[in-house]
Simulated assay, not measured.
Amino acid sequence: MFSTKRQTASDAVFDVVNNVIMLCICFITLYPIWYVIVNAFNDGSDAMRGGIYWWPRQFSLESFRAVFNSSGIMTAMGVTVAKTVVGTVVHVFFTAMVAYAVSRKELIGRQLYMVIGTITMFFGGGLIPYYLLIRDLGLLDSFWVYIIPAMFSFFDLIIFLTFFREIPEALEEAAKIDGANDFRIFWSVIIPSSMPVIATIALFHGVYQWNDYFTGMIYINDTDMQPIQTYLYRVVAQSSSNQMLAAMPSGVAVTVTSQSLKLATMVVTTAPIVFVYPFLQKYFVKGFMLGAIKG
């Protein structure tokens, strides 16, 4: 009886300490985001005095108005949405199709393909050879530079491959008896049975496409083809923020600073994925549990 009480007391202490540590971690993680939001909604000239930590001291939307008045941000947002949607659909379909082919035991050279793919996960040619390849393929300053190089991921192939091996072979055999070819089996049997893993890969790659700024910075010189994250990079680098500030009416520019424009742009560029992600996360968890039950 005494040992049971000691165990209960130690569990209570552990729970308290664990909760305190987790709260501290949550605060350290979330407060910088809250700080950016608070200062973005504060008057720019007033924010320069400092002392704003929890709530806006002088609430103002002028910085956001200046951001949305910029013609470049809406163009960049359109490019980001287009490449996220198209890139995710193409990536999931192409990677799943290759993974299904590799999962077939009758595929000649299957082990060689796995070895070559595994090597590419650890070794690469570097940025300069990759840039020369993109240039020779004619993808510089092209929308397809966001799509074609990201069509396939060997890491995602391994995830698909693991799931495909759990699908009963009887389903494919029944489809072959009905006269279905390999592509029809893939489209009508494998894809509907693989929605949990498809949701997982789509979530991961969609977030990657939205957050990717490096591709637009290196391979795109046309500012009208750069995504929102590259636009944010240019604003943080001050060149675009100073141009936006100079283009504003004099009465508004008094209350807006280069720093407030940067913070407002950060909020605008990150808000869509922050709001969408919880809904995607719900389907991701559901798909993960379905996959666990299926396995």
Score class of each variant (00 low, 15 high):
Tyr231Met: 02
Lys5Gly: 14
Gly72Glu: 14
Ile21Asp: 04
Asp11Trp: 14
Ala12Asn: 06
Trp210His: 04
Val81Thr: 12
Thr162Met: 14
Ser3Ile: 13
Phe123Gly: 03
Ile218Gly: 08
Met48Trp: 05
Tyr31Ile: 07
Val207Ser: 05
Pro249Gly: 07
Thr257Leu: 14
Asn221Asp: 04
Tyr53Asp: 04
Ala96Met: 05
Tyr277Thr: 12
Val36Tyr: 05
Ile25Ser: 11
Glu169Trp: 11
Ala264Val: 05
Gln281Ser: 14
Phe2Thr: 05
Cys24Gly: 14
Tyr231Phe: 11
Ser193Gln: 14
Val20Glu: 07
Phe27Pro: 02
Pro168Asp: 01
Arg57Tyr: 02
Gly117Lys: 03
Val13Arg: 13
Val285Thr: 06
Asn19Glu: 05
Gly78Ile: 06
Leu139Asp: 01
Gly87Phe: 10
Gln7Leu: 15
Trp34Gln: 00
Ser239Tyr: 03
Ala101Gly: 14
Ala150Glu: 07
Phe275Lys: 05
Ala150Pro: 03
Met121Ile: 04
Phe68Leu: 09
Gly138Ile: 13
Val254His: 02
Asp136Val: 06
Gly72Val: 09
Asp212Cys: 13
Val98Gln: 08
Trp187Asp: 04
Lys262Ala: 05
Met48Gly: 02
Ser240Ile: 04
Ile190Asn: 09
Gly291Asp: 12
Tyr53Leu: 14
Phe164Gly: 11
Asn42Ser: 03
Glu172Tyr: 11
Gly117Gln: 01
Phe214Pro: 12
Pro272Val: 07
Thr162Pro: 03
Arg234Phe: 00
Glu169Asn: 09
Ala199Pro: 00
Gln259Phe: 01
Trp54Cys: 06
Phe279Arg: 10
Val102Met: 13
Trp210Lys: 02
Asn18Ser: 11
Glu172Ser: 15
Ser103Arg: 03
Phe204Leu: 15
Ile37Trp: 01
Ile228Thr: 13
Met217Arg: 15
Gly109Leu: 01
Asp182Gly: 12
Arg135Ala: 09
Ile293Val: 11
Arg65Asp: 07
Trp54Arg: 08
Gly51Lys: 15
Ala40Phe: 03
Ile147Gln: 04
Phe164Pro: 06
